[in-house]
Nucleic acid binder design. Structure first.
Length: 740
DNA sequence: GGTCCAACATTTTTT
DNA sequence: ATGTTGGACC
């Protein structure tokens, strides 16, 4: 987690004067096109920058911030909200390079919110040391809530309930509103679980990711004086990737700009890929409605890609119906053809890519020029193996996965209890890890006592005599309580590194790993210790804390892990690729069920998002773009015949080079016969009004039916899911006979 | 209370 | 193929 720019606390980056030459406002505008210039020099009032891929958006935002800092206000009053910590950090660094004085704030929504909630915790009704629950913690909390409601996790899968609750939170729907809108017993149960889940979090002094946003939005709306104060601090607000903001984020951005309306948002509706996380594309589509005085600047010239790449991507995205048309164009010189490689199986695919990368380097290219994208993480393994055996250096954008490793989570759980003694999820995780004679029965007694008396489990540990049912284990409980106490003392007085090392040395975890012959565990934990030491180094003059460090870890994103100048091939999911660019891009697994993903194929809205995802991947490429798909792919131990992606049929006929790759990963001549897309049933015989059954949505009635683009779209009104627009070729509907 | 093995399913994407 | 969970057994 190397940071370059100035001082920061968990995810908040502030640029600092580094002695570089001051860049004048005129110099900031040099080399910018007319629209870019308009965006940079726009003064007060709302501004929407619709920026196509590769249109120099980052440059515009950075220069705009610098320009404002020189002509309008002190950088102290500037706030930029980016999508990842990495982007925030980079922005602060760029401002540094432009010689802009100290004080601008660059952050993600989540980091900013966490910070505001800690500072203003009393107003928010929180303790300053709250824990941020990740997905696994949330699941544990939800299981607890389901248990308290006397329900079974079999009928109410925690992950499923969590996604319902998360959706409600993203939309700023309270449990009360959910209950009021409940249609039937199940909905009421969901609302009930929502309340109980929030209760569990409150008891543990914990917030989930969504809470960070909605509590901040509420903080702003319920405390006008505080909002006023924040508005005076952040006089100019820039929000990047605005197409991926949700309702809560929208309210926060707006709440910070009520007085001055100096809100500048940038984004591209065609790159909206997070609706499954509650992002609402209407935020950007309706910006002009929200802010009637808004200035709109369109950046349509592309500086990144060759005309062929752009033409291919543009042809693809033109198949989306719900979009704002954009005229993408470029003056760049033409490059090699966009290639589509049909590979015999996934080994051929990976081998072909490895060979191509070798060739790229032999021809004078660098490994660092190359990126490989995939729809799902599971596809990375084959690629990794192929790159390793070809001795190609690579890095994977997997920042989050590191902190989700078992051994890392165990060590962090100790530290989290030290930072927040009410964190029961963490406490129960480690109470018997390593085994220290505290079994399930004892834990049940402890939790029962805690619930009954309203005391945190941690407090009860120290006085086991008062817990009914606990006798022999009492000794172990006391020892554990002492361990945690000593850790808390170390954490309070020593460095962060001291605290992490205390856990590793005194918890007994090392012995456990040795016994289990888990050699990676120790190495990974060493890395964690290094990260702690690095954090100590960055906070020699104070400002750091265990809570802050843990918060940073909770809010890391996958891309945060990638290094720009690593000299290695970069691999990542399509979602992580947003905002990046590479000379050479391989987009893998263009197969039905993978891209578009099978879970999205039946719903038109979701299908369009898959297409946008593909569009994002393609437009990352500057010079060379290769799309690959496999005829056979191993999945869950079985070899599966794969059908090429419908998106491949949507590419232009001209300017695309087709390759066929045999099992050795070698080219095997040209491929002619165009695959027939998946439509085989004649859906045109179906009539509106007919009753249909879907495995996913149950029974519904056809409202309308319409063929388009070699597919058949249909509107279906389902009894329990409402109206959906489906693609019949993938929806797998069956007709239902109606009784007379 | 702890350990080991077998049945089991398998969330796509992530702050 | 792989990682998790629950139950039998020590």
């Amino acid at each position: 987690m190397a940071q370059t720019a100035g001082r920061h606390d968990a995810g908040i980056f502030t640029n600092s004067w580094n002695g570089r030459a001051y860049v004048s406002p005129d110099e900031l505008l040099a080399g910018l096109t007319e629209p870019q210039r308009r965006a940079v020099t726009h003064g007060n009032g709302p501004l929407l920058v619709l920026a196509g891929p590769g249109s120099g958006k980052t440059r515009v935002i950075t220069h705009r911030a610098a320009y404002l800092a020189q002509t309008a206000t002190d950088p102290y009053h500037l706030l930029a909200i980016t999508f990842t910590n990495k982007a925030a950090n980079e922005m602060a660094s760029r401002l540094d390079r432009l010689g802009i004085g100290m004080g601008m704030t660059c952050s993600t929504f989540h980091s900013l919110c966490a910070r505001l909630l800690r500072i203003h915790h009393d107003r928010a009704g929180l303790r300053p040391n709250f824990t941020i629950f990740d997905t696994a913690d949330q699941t544990a909390a939800m299981k607890d809530a389901i248990g308290r409601a006397n329900l079974s996790a079999d009928n109410y899968p925690p992950a499923g309930i969590l996604s319902i609750v998360s959706r409600a939170k993203n939309d700023m729907v309270t449990p009360e509103e959910m209950r009021a809108n409940a249609r039937g017993f199940r909905d009421e149960t969901f609302a009930d679980l929502y309340v109980r889940y929030d209760q569990v979090l409150a008891e543990q002094n914990a917030l989930d990711f969504d809470d960070l946003l909605i509590r901040t939005a509420r903080l702003l709306s319920e405390h006008p004086d505080l909002r006023d104060q924040l508005e005076d601090r952040y006089r100019y607000v820039l929000v990047d990737e605005y197409q991926d903001t949700n309702r809560a984020q929208y309210l926060i951005a707006r709440g910070l700009c009520l007085k001055r309306a100096n809100l500048c948002v940038t984004g591209d509706p065609d790159q909206s890929i997070y609706s499954w996380r509650g992002a609402d594309i209407h935020n950007i589509l309706q910006f002009e409605g929200d802010f009637p005085r808004a200035t709109v600047v369109r950046l349509e010239q592309n500086y990144r890609s060759t005309p062929r790449i752009l033409a291919a991507a543009d042809a693809l995205i033109a198949n989306n119906h719900k979009r704002k048309e954009k005229a993408l164009w470029t003056e760049n010189a033409d490059g090699p053809a966009v290639r589509v490689a049909e590979c015999e199986d996934q080994h051929a695919e990976a081998g072909f890519i490895a060979g191509e990368i070798r060739r790229h380097v032999e021809e004078g290219g660098r490994f660092g020029d190359v990126a490989i994208f995939y729809r799902i993480n599971a596809l990375s393994r084959n690629l990794e193996m192929a790159l390793r055996s070809a001795q190609i250096p690579y890095q994977i954008a997997r920042g989050v996965a590191f902190y989700q490793r078992k051994e890392i989570k165990d060590v962090l759980a100790y530290l989290r209890v030290a930072a927040n003694p009410r964190d029961q999820v963490s406490l129960l995780r480690i109470i018997n890890v390593p085994a220290r004679g505290i079994g399930k029965t004892t834990v049940d007694h402890l939790v029962a006592a805690a619930t009954r008396t309203g005391q945190p489990v941690l407090d009860i540990l120290a006085k086991p005599d008062q817990v009914p049912g606990v006798s022999r284990a009492g000794r172990h409980l006391k020892l554990f309580a002492t361990l945690l106490n000593d850790l808390a003392t170390t954490a309070r007085h020593g460095s962060l590194k001291d605290a992490v090392e205390f856990v590793v040395r005194n918890s007994g975890l090392i012995a456990m790993w040795d016994k289990g012959e888990d050699n990676d565990a120790l190495a990974n934990v060493e890395e964690l210790i290094n990260a702690a030491a690095e954090y100590d180094q960055q906070h020699l003059e104070g400002g750091g804390s265990l809570t802050d460090w843990l918060q940073g870890i909770s809010l890391v994103s996958d891309v945060d892990a990638i290094e720009e100048e690593s000299g290695a091939v970069t691999m990542m999911t399509l979602h992580a690729a947003k905002g990046l660019e590479f000379d050479t891009v391989f987009l893998t697994g263009l197969e039905q069920g993978l891209l578009p993903h099978e879970r999205s194929a039946t719903d038109l809205f979701e299908l369009e998002e898959e297409r946008r995802l593909c569009f994002v991947g393609m437009t990352r490429a500057m010079r060379r773009l290769t799309l690959t798909h496999a005829k056979w792919r191993d999945f869950r131990g079985m070899s599966q015949r794969r059908v090429k992606s419908q998106f491949l049929h949507e590419l232009p006929k001209r300017g695309i080079e087709k390759l066929r790759i045999d099992i050795h990963g070698a080219g095997a001549g040209e491929d002619e016969e165009p695959d027939i897309p998946a439509s085989s049933v004649d859906y045109l015989e179906w009539r509106k009004g007919q009753l249909v059954r879907s495995a996913q949505y149950g029974i519904g009635r056809l409202l309308w039916i319409q063929p388009r683009n070699r597919q058949t779209y249909a509107g279906v009104k389902f009894t329990s899911f409402g109206e959906k627009t489906l693609v019949l070729e993938y929806a797998n509907l069956e007709l239902v006979e109606e009784a007379d």
